[in-house]
Design a protein around this nucleic acid. Structure first.
Lengths: 219, 219, 219, 219
DNA sequence: GATGAATGAGAATTCATTCAT
DNA sequence: TATGAATGAATTCTCATTCAT
């Protein structure tokens, strides 16, 4: 194994041993992260392969060794970003503790904020790009709808619990409730990026105000 | 009618500017509509000027006589799409009748559906593109934030009415409530386009189920 | 004079009288002057017909009513500029007074300076453009070579007089002398525009120093 | 400099830039030469990038890999042409032998002729284009004025020598003399290309006739 | 003649991708 | 495998010129 310094990068060139699947996966991830950084800065379309290649520190050929096309990289970035919301979420809603709808939304928003503060760049920016892209890119559409469907199902579980608790009308359709709870999230992300004045706390406060039981004043 | 002397010629200029300006405005609109159709089909970036030119039925030079650049057309489309939501909305919330939050959301969603069924193409698709575009395009960001801020202010008025009615906690921050009410809309639009299974009625039903006062069952 | 309304514009059209040749010539000149101004500022190729049209205050159609093409305007500008040097010159060298070579050069340079200070713009800038253009434009080449040949012939006359005077070797070829005298002019124009530090006086002083008889110092 | 064997290939990692830089420089020169050929034939503005690309035998992308824009190529051609006059000149005037003004002009003209006969195409045609271009192109103006100033300074040295020799009035301003000597060159180039009837020999003969000391005939 | 909107061929430039080394 | 120079189709935009009114 020889260290080679070239163009300011240092490579360990192995004597062609097992270039394992793991190695490939790591390289792919490096490329996706480099590309993601570009996408967060410039968007999917204004990010050129030259940008990705420069940012990744690899050569054009190398990048194309890991991904067949720019589209494949774009899909990987979108996958990654859409999954991140989902993954982080998994833990929360899996708790056995009773979770009110407001608490579920709050927990999710807190995770959104974490995702947004990631040192690799704000993933919510990628998510918005992915929404737009999904409209004209079948692969991303498939990923997005599948991920979001799963996420929404978690909210459906929350709704059912609330109905079981009696805090929500048991005759209501839990799926419709899930649509609303899930539906609050894109609006949060969007307001955060376009208007810049929302916080999870404020949003949840507003939601709680709306949800808290209150009799209309008697006439 | 004004006499104008120009290059030694004397003209009686009648309403010329009027006619011409109107003509120009119409042509611009034609071009925007043609371009919008392309954008709905292919997205902002995959829509080429050649597409727009073909679709508009004009020549390249003619199109560029009305818009300095593709960017200007893109901005016009985004403006148009973002304004449409706003405009249609104006009427609804301006009614003097007391408007509950759920009713306000319902009315807005019904308008969203109208916009989506426009024969010129589904404007909500353009809106999603505009969200993504706003992140890297200052002009669109400016339009989007201004339009959405105005829209959200309407919801703030609704929140205040509800607080006055006593149907919402008067101590809550109406702006936070507005964030939530406004925040429901992107989620509806997105679920409609990505998951395809939401309707204004269902969404409002879910929302009403959440909002309807209900005591937790006594232990 | 009759009022005519056409395309929503109302014109006072003079009874369509003799749009004389003189009128045409004046209009052509106006256009050439407008175009010349553009050319002085931007060069032949970066001057667009739109520039010329704007500067002339006429319409596209009108300009094309007087000139068949941009090339024709370019040729007219070049003609005009190349002739100006010639015309102004005519007077000087036509004097009967004996004119030494240095005096002839001086007189010419003074005219060059006048041409350069013309309020319509520095014609020497046009001349340089015309030199370059002549290399690829037969019409301009023809004009330039004819004008310059005539101008050089004037210098040949000067040379002959000097030979007759005995101030120049009578065995020399007067045409070669004319080449040199004429040849001093482009160098003046060029240094003036590129280096900006020549004056007719200085140039003539340098020339006189070279021409003044002087014995090499005896060994 | 370290030899590295990697995957059966052997790299000299340090000196790499050297090789590459040289290659780059050669390619740039190839492109400039190809472009120059086009420019000599059609002029700067009528030479299209398509022409340059075809003539260079490279692809569009390759050419743009070496030059950022057409302007950069144009500047390189102008640089090259303006420098060539200068460079060739360097040798001549650097000789220690006493050089009379006429001899200096002669030597220069002979070099001009060499430049004009270059198999790559007549560089004097490029020079004339560059004069015109300099008027509206700052980069070329900068190159032209710097190169020509240096060239003229060589003539100033010649003038000083002549003054020291006593063949030229020692009270004259050597810079003015240099203006005249330098100023003879553009006129030669121009007459050669526009009138086609000058030769270095004839031109120098004319000059010598003017310079040769001769008493006006006594009255 | 006059107008100026419209034309459309053509220009410069970019960028995803390939392939010889 | 890795490299990065090379490819060339595609894209945006310009501008001389025309022609219906």
């Amino acid at each position: 194994m020889v260290e080679v310094v070239k163009n300011g990068h240092s490579f360990y060139v192995r004597g062609m041993p097992k270039v394992t699947e793991e190695h490939r996966a790591n390289r792919r991830l490096e490329i996706v992260h480099a590309a993601r950084k570009c996408v967060i800065e410039h968007g999917f379309h204004k990010t050129t392969m030259a940008d990705v290649i420069r940012e990744s520190g690899l050569s054009a050929g190398a990048v194309y060794g890991y991904f067949k096309s720019k589209d494949e990289i774009v899909a990987a970035i979108a996958d990654d970003a859409l999954s991140s919301i989902d993954e982080l979420f998994e833990g929360i809603l899996a708790t056995e503790a009773p979770l009110t709808p407001a608490a579920a939304v709050q927990a999710t928003l807190e995770h959104v904020i974490q995702i947004a503060d990631l040192k690799g760049g704000d993933l919510t920016r990628v998510a918005i790009q992915a929404w737009a892209e999904a409209l004209h890119n079948d692969a991303i559409m498939a990923t997005a709808s599948s991920k979001y469907r799963i996420l929404r199902e978690h909210f459906e579980a929350v709704a059912r619990r609330a109905q079981a608790d009696g805090t929500v009308d048991p005759d209501a359709d839990p799926q419709q409730i899930a649509q609303v709870l899930f539906g609050l999230l894109p609006g949060f992300v969007l307001q955060r990026l376009l208007l810049g004045d929302v916080t999870p706390e404020g949003y949840v406060a507003g939601l709680s105000a709306l949800l808290s039981p209150r009799q209309p004043k008697p006439v």
